[in-house]
Design a binder for these strands. Structure first.
Lengths: 240, 240
DNA sequence: GGAGAGGTGTGATGGCCGTCACATCCCTCT
DNA sequence: AGAGGGATGTGACGGCCATCACACCTCTCC
């Protein structure tokens, strides 16, 4: 996989190009220098596990590059996706703040870079810089909102097609560059199995629903690139 | 309702008997004095609405006495309970911190007292006292955990009986004083309709499941007082 | 005390979707 | 190139539960 070679590591938080757009990293210089000192940068391949649900908190992760999947698993091995974390998010916060076991298992969906901060350093960092506390609160509200959205999606939708349409439309908010105004291309890196875990259904049902969407000419699927051909139809399904 | 007469209002946060047990109120004296100045105490009857989902945030509420129900509603009027807030919780935080519309509609389940703090005062309060930021983070992590628990409950359970058993067992963690060691009495103030909204099912199904629990001799229901007669059987249902 | 509203119990029916089963397709690795 | 594992498509079947419908019960409020 050539990926490893053109993967760019961000070593220095102060010079990070994304610094200002990112929730947690847009800090005053003195705080950022401290961050630079206490962080440990790591690079993970796709499918790496950053932490495991139920384990005592070791610290937090600032996701610099790549996306990660947060899942929780039941006793009988069934699991559900809580959310997909985007670059810039801080992971493991709930556990670190309340000093309780990790709520979710975090798995990278792509080759990723993350800065780890130990529990001890993190607590000191928060206490020393008031700005950091605010960022922490922001990230936590984001987590809450995602969770509430998930509850709405799972609990209030009537049918699986509706939930899947909802999910696809959410992904369509960040589309790929479009060539044809009628067509809305998006990139989907989740497997059908993962989509099933996201909407709380079975893999087979996802397959069937997507077939149906294609049959009706609403969607085209070619590998990881999906093209929404009839956004309106999908929206009608949701408004139900 | 005689309730109105023996309802005790807590006027002074500094002298509040619960001060130390409560997440948000266990603050240094100077912060508490400030809190005392910016808060507006109100008393609400049962069924009062503190805020409405989708409205711009006006401020936060510290729930001093009573419990409240947080719900979110879909376009077609179906609604689901996000959680039941207990005395001492801070409500409306997600909205206030991120300055976005309220995520939920908050309705009192009992006659309640709440201290309101306006958006403006709250922001100042957080910035002035670092301790407050920490408390805010704690409350937010609590919200997250509740939400994740709800997602697990709705998304990972197979059957409605399982979800209801889970709910009943959660309530059983704070039982009423028990007379008979075999019997575990709990107080349930939710209607079957509300229970249905909590577990994402229909009212009729809740009724049927509870009937079944009674028929098997696992549960006795007399008004708002339920008695768990066979905790083990309920737990077996959940372990599935 | 009677009306009316809100909460609850229960039958009948039908459809969605979970589960099992298997075929196919598409990678990746040797 | 062939093997093998993972991802996907699709049929058959059956059960759970949403929905409709209605009776009854229990409050509250004139």
């Amino acid at each position: 996989m050539a990926m490893a070679y053109n993967f760019h590591i961000i070593e220095n938080c102060l010079k990070c190009a994304f610094r200002e757009q990112r929730l947690f990293c847009d800090l005053p210089n003195d705080a950022l220098i401290k961050l630079q000192n206490i962080k440990a940068t790591s690079v993970y391949p796709k499918g790496a596990l950053l932490c495991l649900e139920g384990q005592p908190p070791r610290g937090i992760f600032v996701l610099c590059t790549g996306r990660a999947k947060l899942t929780t698993t039941s006793a009988e091995g069934k699991s559900i996706i809580l959310r997909i974390a985007e670059p810039g998010e801080v992971l493991g916060l709930t556990a670190a703040v309340s000093n309780t076991p990790y709520e979710a298992t975090i798995e990278t969906l792509e080759p990723s870079q993350a800065n780890f901060i130990s529990q001890h350093d993190f607590v000191g960092f928060v206490q020393e810089y008031p700005d950091v506390g605010l960022k922490v609160a922001r990230q936590l509200t984001h987590n809450c909102k995602c969770a509430y959205g998930e509850i709405r999606s799972i609990g209030l939708s009537n049918s699986v097609p509706e939930k899947i349409a909802k999910l696809v439309l959410r992904w369509a908010e960040q589309p790929l560059p479009r060539k044809n105004p009628q067509e809305l291309p998006i990139r989907v890196t989740l497997t059908q199995e993962e989509i099933a875990q996201f909407v709380g259904t079975s893999r087979e049902t996802v397959s069937r629903v997507l077939s149906e969407f294609r049959r009706r000419g609403w969607l085209r699927i070619k590998g990881a690139t999906w093209t929404i051909l009839n956004k309106h139809a999908l929206e009608d399904l949701v408004t139900t």
